[in-house]
């Protein structure tokens, strides 16, 4: 019943395509780069997020300087010792970086899954793991670039505002480099968590709500008085960041986290996010 009963023979020989160039991972990186920046909202969102983050941090330093004359000498001394360095990258700025980059990571995968573009992508590139891997690389690189830029500008600007008697420090100050690294890395960690959440949840609103819970709600609502709740809060990326920016050891907490533990939290979230995205998306029927 197959095609042996042709009444009309082929009018031409079979078309032979020219030899294919070898498949290169860098082609996929370039494709993902084009994909990301050709969505008009992405460059604007990243630019506005950077300005907002830098603005929030600069405002913290500015208001400390403005309030300085009204503080007691004790308060002033305390700020010089414990307040001037952390004001280079404030808590709201860190939470915003986590959320904003999480959103960028989520959009990178959701914009393909919810529009059906992923079918087109996987039709063009059947090596699905390579596609997801290239997405992971491009998104992490863009987020890391964003993190480094925003943190470097904030640090330089804020510590310049606070230079002199207000306690502004240089990058060589103990703990300063760790604060800069921890804050900058929060961006790629957030982006990859967003990517993984988008890949698993496949629904835009639910993904954003989950990201919001992770970045804002959970870190501030769970107490850490019991062992279990302390383990949960210490395992959150935002709480890991708050530990990494502390210059001294923690007193008065029953189950304090450690610096090494906090870096491990960053690493584990990253590893789990990448593994999830690589394991789940290629397996699905498109």
């Amino acid at each position: 019943m197959s095609a042996q009963t042709n009444t009309r023979p082929a009018t031409a020989g079979t078309y032979e395509p020219p030899a294919e160039p070898s498949a290169k991972f860098t082609d996929l990186l370039a494709a993902e780069w084009i994909k990301l920046w050709s969505l008009r909202s992405i460059p604007w969102f990243i630019l506005l997020s950077a300005l907002a983050t830098i603005g929030v941090n600069a405002n913290a330093a500015r208001s400390a300087r403005a309030d300085w004359p009204s503080w007691t000498p004790d308060h002033q001394a305390y700020y010089v010792r414990y307040g001037a360095l952390p004001d280079a990258f404030t808590r709201p700025a860190a939470a915003w970086v986590l959320l904003a980059m999480g959103a960028v990571g989520a959009i990178a995968i959701l914009s393909e899954q919810t529009s059906g573009l992923l079918r087109t992508t996987f039709g063009a590139v059947p090596a699905r793991r390579e596609v997801i891997a290239s997405k992971v690389v491009v998104i992490s690189a863009v987020a890391a670039g964003f993190g480094v830029l925003v943190v470097a500008v904030s640090f330089w600007l804020d510590e310049a505002i606070l230079a002199g008697k207000y306690g502004g420090v240089s990058i060589g100050h103990p703990g300063a480099l760790r604060l800069v690294a921890a804050s900058a890395l929060l961006a790629p960690v957030g982006a990859l968590v967003g990517l993984a959440l988008g890949a698993v949840i496949r629904h835009s609103v639910a993904t954003m709500v989950t990201l919001f819970l992770l970045a804002f709600i959970l870190p501030t609502t769970i107490n850490d008085n019991t062992h279990l709740s302390a383990v949960i809060t210490n395992a959150l990326p935002f709480r890991a960041w708050t530990r990494l920016i502390l210059q001294s050891t923690i007193n008065g907490q029953p189950f304090p986290s450690t610096i090494g533990g906090a870096w491990t939290v960053y690493a584990v979230w990253t590893a789990v996010a990448v593994s999830l995205a690589l394991a789940i998306v290629p397996k699905r029927d498109q």
Binding site: A23, A30, S38, L39, S115, G116, L117, T120, V125
Partner: peptide, 22 residues
Amino acid sequence: AGDMHGGRTAHNHLRFLARSNA
């Protein structure tokens, strides 16, 4: 025909597809 993202231009849609396959 819906398997594309409405936020991109036609040119960019084809450009990234072309790039992915050299």
